[in-house]
Design a protein around this nucleic acid. Structure first.
Length: 439
RNA sequence: GGGGGCGUGGUGUAGCGGUUCAACAUGCGGCCCUGUCAAGGCCGAGAUCGCGGGUUCAAAUCCCGUCGCUCCCGCCA
């Protein structure tokens, strides 16, 4: 038995074929039966005259919506058929199940079941073309990212996710028993990609899971998500990191655009635009001026930081002024940044760091790192961190670590921005949040 | 952790003190229909309106508590 994909049926007119897929609709009439069968490549109408084979007719009548089936028949052209002008005249069918669906499966429905309910039945929700397309796009996106890295001599790393010391110091770490001691789930590959700089790998990337124990109930947070990290050596400033990042991200967009532009327009109503280079850049000080001009009021306790509303306002401003979806906000105050961010030489209260906003959503944080052992130690102490648990990390910089920098990007957030998805739960295969561990 | 919103048949909604208030759509089951196509027509099953308490002659409807979901803020990617 050789399977034919539905998109290829037009090349098999008059031939006997076998098709495998799901039964989307059954129209069971007095003398005829019509099925719409869908596989990953499309949908086709299948017709059967009851009189010819009453036994088969009875079998067809019993097929439940969304049953998986293998069918064979002859492909015929028929311009009356609205679905592609062809149909299969059915000869036999094998049905894998007939159970009633717990949720409606309506490809054209305007209202979907509640988000939480759909997550309970995620494996059925994922069958919808729109959802499958998201993960086809994700696959293309990751491949384009990877192609670029490989062309530019990056080394891929897989750092451990079970770690002995919280990697960025906060309370937002998951801990777990680990034999006679306690282990933590990595909040980021931050320390390990910097270790690769000390190891002399010069340019590394990693795509891997990231765990955050934040009790965040928003449309853009998860307790486990896919992090995309890069780190490069011999940079002179965070500007070098931003240049690398924007070039790479543009290539990733190009990869998706080459393959999916039409589908994205059709399914998400979004015109996928490959961002132009360079991305707009704005210092935090300038951002404050813009926000003041826009009349956006930041609470005084923010102290040089932004809040989500300010980020959205900035994103809209950049879109209006520069026609760009992305903006780098640079030179963040040291008070709101991690201790390992390098400071500006002439303004030590500011860091050589940046966030990348996509359509007003924070998708990336990056910086040049402080690679000088003594300075790094001093900055850790200044933040009130104790050096002892950090010692393994600090040691990376003792024996000839080049100046370096890098960034971390949320893959799911990037998909949200790219496809204009309203909720990160749509941009992940299975959502994990404070109240969601199953399925 | 703080704040707002929502919880009505399988699913999505309407009703928001009494009077067709338990409805509509869809799905499901049955019957009808010579080719349908998001098919159509008729009939039917299916909800003590999240749960507990209170107010009232009367509660899906008002109040309190509780649980669940959701969004925003905090935190971040």
């Amino acid at each position: 038995m050789e399977r034919t994909f539905i998109k290829d049926l037009k090349d098999h007119i008059g031939e006997h074929v076998t098709v495998q897929g799901w039964m989307q609709v059954l129209r069971d009439q007095k003398s005829m039966q019509f099925l719409v069968v869908r596989d990953r490549t499309g949908a086709v109408q299948v017709a059967h005259w009851k009189k010819g084979n009453p036994e088969l007719a009875e079998k067809i009548s019993a097929i439940g919506t969304e049953s998986a089936l293998t069918l064979s028949g002859t492909v015929v052209e028929n311009e009356v058929v609205k679905l592609g002008g062809i149909e299969i005249q059915l000869e036999s069918v094998t049905v894998e199940n007939n159970a009633e669906l717990p949720l409606p499966f309506e490809p054209f429905a305007e209202t979907l079941p509640d988000q939480d309910f759909r997550m309970d039945w995620r494996y059925l929700d994922l069958r919808r073309d729109r959802n499958r397309l998201i993960f086809e796009i994700q696959t293309t996106l990751e491949q384009a990212m990877r192609n670029w890295w490989i062309e530019h001599n990056y080394i891929e790393m897989h750092s451990p996710k079970i770690i002995g010391t919280p990697s960025e110091g906060g309370a937002e770490v998951f801990s777990m028993p680990y034999f006679e001691t306690t282990a933590y789930l990595a909040q980021s590959p931050q320390f390990y990609k910097q270790m690769a700089m000390s190891a002399g790998y010069e340019k590394v990337f990693e795509i891997g899971p990231v765990f955050r124990s934040d009790p965040s109930f928003t449309s853009r947070h998860m307790t486990e998500f896919t992090g995309v990290d890069m780190e490069i050596s011999w940079v002179e400033s965070h500007e070098d990191v931003m240049k690398e990042l924007e070039t790479w991200l543009t290539a990733a967009y190009q990869g998706v655009a080459d393959k999916h532009t039409a589908q994205i327009q059709e399914t998400f109503g979004v015109e996928l635009k490959v961002p132009s280079l360079p991305f707009p850049r704005i210092t935090m000080a300038e951002a404050y001026d813009v926000l003041k001009k826009l009349g956006y009021k930041l609470p005084p306790e923010r102290k040089g930081d932004l809040d989500p509303g300010a980020e959205r306002a900035l994103g809209a401003y950049i879109k209006q002024e520069f026609g760009h979806d992305f903006v780098f906000v640079t030179d963040w105050p040291a008070t709101v940044r991690a201790f390992y961010h390098m400071r500006l030489a002439d303004k030590p209260h500011l860091t050589r760091s940046f966030d990348l906003l996509g359509r007003g959503l924070e998708i990336t944080t990056g910086a040049q790192r402080e690679h000088r052992y003594e300075v790094l130690k001093a900055q850790a102490l200044e933040k009130g961190l104790s050096l002892e648990p950090l010692q393994d990390y600090l040691n990376f910089f003792k024996y000839g670590c080049p100046p370096h920098g890098g960034m971390g990007l949320g893959l799911n957030r990037l998909l949200m921005v790219m496809l204009d998805l309203p909720n990160i739960r749509e941009a992940v295969y299975l959502f994990r949040g404070p109240n969601r561990l199953n399925p």
